[in-house]
Amino acid sequence: ELFLLEHASKNQYDYYHLLSGVDLPLKSQDYIHQFFDKNNGKEFINFDECVRNIVIEKRVKYYYFFVGGYRSQNLFYRYFTKIFNRISRTVQNILGISKIDEGYVYRKGSQWFSITHSLAKYVLDQRENIKRNYRYSFCCDEVFLQTIVYNSPFFAMVKRIDEKYNNALRYIDWEHGNPYVFKSSDFNNLIKSKALFARKFNVENIDVVKKITQHILNEL
């Protein structure tokens, strides 16, 4: 994410949007540009509201090794990773090891965002601290941006939208999947959403992608 922001910001765009390879726009380019022109200066970042600070801190406090093992197809490696990190956390706790910055309130949320050039530059100015503080952490892509913004003047510019995950303008369904993969039967809910982007989609359910694409083309 830092690498992408660093290279994209060389041309100084108004907004930077982090998307995955299984995301899809739900609106036309004209609609998306008009939306950000209207909300110029606002930051679109998701913050989980119901997670206690101590739970988030555990992701950063300890050194996690072999983190890639959590998603490995090798069951033995996955099991080894969980056991090793559990023992490692216990030992670190006994030794009083902590990477927590006591002056920070830690927050988390969805990693996908739409942020201004000013915030992108603010984040990049801290990239060495980010690398040092979050290296060997656990799922820090859901923590580092939210924590930086929450402890900065930029938090006042976060756009509040009263719909789950829509603070980041992303339609993501965590209730029916990890996350849920959209199908043709979800088409109406998707296009009626206030979100500008949605995830996730795959080739096995390509019909819904075609329907959304055609819907956008029809509105041009």
Score class of each variant (00 low, 15 high):
Leu26Ala: 11
Gly103Asn: 15
Tyr13Leu: 11
Tyr16Cys: 02
Asn151Gly: 13
Gly103Trp: 00
Glu128His: 03
Gln146Phe: 04
Val55Trp: 10
Gly41Phe: 01
Arg52His: 11
Glu128Lys: 08
Ser185Met: 14
Ser28Val: 11
Lys108Trp: 00
Tyr79Met: 15
Phe201Pro: 04
Lys211Phe: 03
Ser193Tyr: 02
Tyr134Asn: 02
Arg71Trp: 15
Asn93His: 14
Asn151Ala: 13
His117Cys: 01
Ser193Arg: 01
Gln12Arg: 13
Lys211Tyr: 04
Leu119Pro: 02
Ala195Arg: 01
Lys210Cys: 07
Asn205Met: 03
Asn167His: 09
Tyr79Gly: 12
Ile148Glu: 04
Ile172Ser: 13
Glu1Val: 02
His7Pro: 06
Ser88Pro: 11
Cys139Gln: 14
Phe197Tyr: 13
Lys159Trp: 05
Trp112Val: 05
Arg86Phe: 10
Arg127Gln: 12
Asn40Met: 09
His215Tyr: 15
Asn205Lys: 11
Arg160Trp: 03
His176Tyr: 11
Gln111Glu: 09
Val123Leu: 10
Asp162Trp: 14
Asn93Gln: 14
Asn133His: 12
Val51Gly: 01
Arg135Lys: 12
Phe84Arg: 12
Thr90Asn: 10
Lys108Pro: 01
Val143Ser: 00
Gly68Arg: 04
Tyr70Arg: 09
Ala195Val: 08
Asn40Ala: 06
Asn11Tyr: 15
Pro25Gly: 10
His215Met: 07
Leu220Val: 05
Gly41Tyr: 02
Leu75Asn: 07
Phe35Lys: 05
Ser152Gly: 02
Asp173Ile: 04
